[in-house]
Design a protein around this nucleic acid. Sequence first.
DNA 1: ACGATACCCTGATGGC
DNA 2: TGCCATCAGGGTATCG
Length: 297
Amino acid sequence: MFAMPELPEVERVRVTLAKHVIGLVVSRVSVRRPDVVHGPRRRGCLLENQTISGVERLGKQLALVSSNISGEPGPCVCVHLGMSGSLRYLPPDSVDSLAPHTHVVWTLSSPRGENGGRIAFADARRFGGLWTFGSRENLVKSRWRRLGDDALSVSPAVLHRRLSATRRVVKAALLDQAVIAGLGNIYVDELLFRARIHPLAAANQLDSAHVQRMVRAMRALLREAVHNGGSSLRNYVDADGTSGRFQKLHQVYGRAGCSCVRCRSKLEAATVGGRATVWCPTCQPRRPAAAVTTKKD
DNA sequence: ACGATACCCTGATGGC
DNA sequence: TGCCATCAGGGTATCG
């Protein structure tokens, strides 16, 4: 348990960072730990002398998108925060020394050359990293092509199709970023609880009503989490250094053995898909379809 | 094709 | 107080 940035936390970083850096020029890049940077390393690949034109997100991954001085598309850096990564904006007047494990620092200036502050990428465990691309299009065509649709915008039909194609248990499938992008251990447990689906239910046994319920619960959950600044379990902060509050609203994650907020049953726990998993045995029946309809058995 | 497992890595935690 | 084993987890790789 550390920062664990999932979709809501990464979205907060995206918004808070974009607010400060769009339109600024990268005047210098300092790579303090070269092994966190993957992909081409030619000059400019880390956005030197480029203007930051956008900060995008797909699932848990971010992209700093640039354009050159004439506004033509420039290189692009994909940022994955992994378990413990952070991307902070440090304003021009900031006197704070860099956080421990800061691996890359972008120094920014306004188009007129005034001090524009800095962006700092830090990642203690180094499960995250940076990937360079010649253009945004290259990122989307290669690395991001391997990801499923974003959890905030996936349609029930698409998710249903993806889930129907795997015999894994639903929790394992939802954690797979190629199935759906953005969910991690916390939000999968929370959304399955809200949708009243057992984490060990077979993904390909869910009917369209289940998936529809799941998508509805997922959107509501993720939006609430974003609006609450995400979940800060140890030290997650957004680009401004602000912590989230959503951890106080978790209904099952981290509550193994506690009573269900809905029915007071004792929450159960097990390892599923290699991850600690908590659910309510009453609210989340093992066979969602059978629970109401089946008479004989 | 899938599950199980190991690995990467560091900091927080609990036991002694 | 201090040491040490344990745990946490996103993603990838490997084996069965």
